[in-house]
Design a binder for these strands. Sequence first.
DNA 1: AGCAGAGTTCGATTATTTTTGAACAATTCG
DNA 2: CGAATTGTTCAAAAATAATCGAACTCTGCT
Lengths: 160, 160
Amino acid sequence: MPSKPLTPFQRESIDLFVGAFAVLSLPRSLGEIYGLLYSSEEPLAFDDFVTRLDLSKGSVSEGLRLLRSLGAVNLLPVEGSRKDHFIAETSLRKLAGGYLRDRIEPYLRGGESRIESLRKVSATDPELNDFQQKRINQLLSWHRFFARVLPVFKALAGKI
Amino acid sequence: MPSKPLTPFQRESIDLFVGAFAVLSLPRSLGEIYGLLYSSEEPLAFDDFVTRLDLSKGSVSEGLRLLRSLGAVNLLPVEGSRKDHFIAETSLRKLAGGYLRDRIEPYLRGGESRIESLRKVSATDPELNDFQQKRINQLLSWHRFFARVLPVFKALAGKI
DNA sequence: AGCAGAGTTCGATTATTTTTGAACAATTCG
DNA sequence: CGAATTGTTCAAAAATAATCGAACTCTGCT
């Protein structure tokens, strides 16, 4: 039984973030946790998520860990309590930055070497080299594009 | 039995796109189909995907349909054949644009009304209005941010 | 019309991801 | 120290998503 029922504002916020997280293919429980935190003025303790969202301790533990690693949730020491308390990160730069850092950039960083190995195998097939060269060059230019645009995006997000 | 085995260049390309599609949480079969097409100079027929990638007709049918709806694959009439033939779309603007249009923008378009209903429920809870107002305003500014940045991103992608 | 080839549909199967829950630390308090 | 509280871990269950494949439709050909 949830000790403290969710307010309408909280329910709506949770809905909103569940949807937003779904756009990024992130699980519902993450959206619920972040949504509740975002719509709560006070820091929340571990147990609040379990009781008010009716999630298992395991889900909350994993969920908070992932959100913390994304930089979407911050641990906040609360004096007089030995429970962990959490608040939502609300800087768009940090939110977007964390997502990009953990989900997008790792693949992008590996991109050059993947294209390099394409070039290697292409060398063993002299017949199609012209076409293959075109493809490889295009992949390189796509890679450069993303490598340039991501920092710009982050910088813009920092202005919000 | 695959009639024509994949070249090393094709295998590497498929790997690359399977990974890239995975970043966007798109299924492996889509990455395989697009990767094979991207690395093939000639247009490919439906059956080529089935035999060379060892996928079921069902998967290929669904996969090509989704890729076409994303604008990542184009149908190409080949004279003298009544089979459908396909070529890869390689304009970054169209590729990125299609993804954004189908996956991101629909949620963004619904954003204003979701924020509006947040405002509505907030009105019924006068106590926390200050905090809630701050959150709502922030959500609005995030929404404006994305609504502005996406077109810029598309425009930049058009320059590649 | 009847047949063959080409592709689609969709219920069933398989694979993957998410969530649970119970056992297990770790820490604090009496 | 021993009990209680807090949170983590991870194997198993549940939920979800992807893939398959057989039946079907559609089109063109003879």
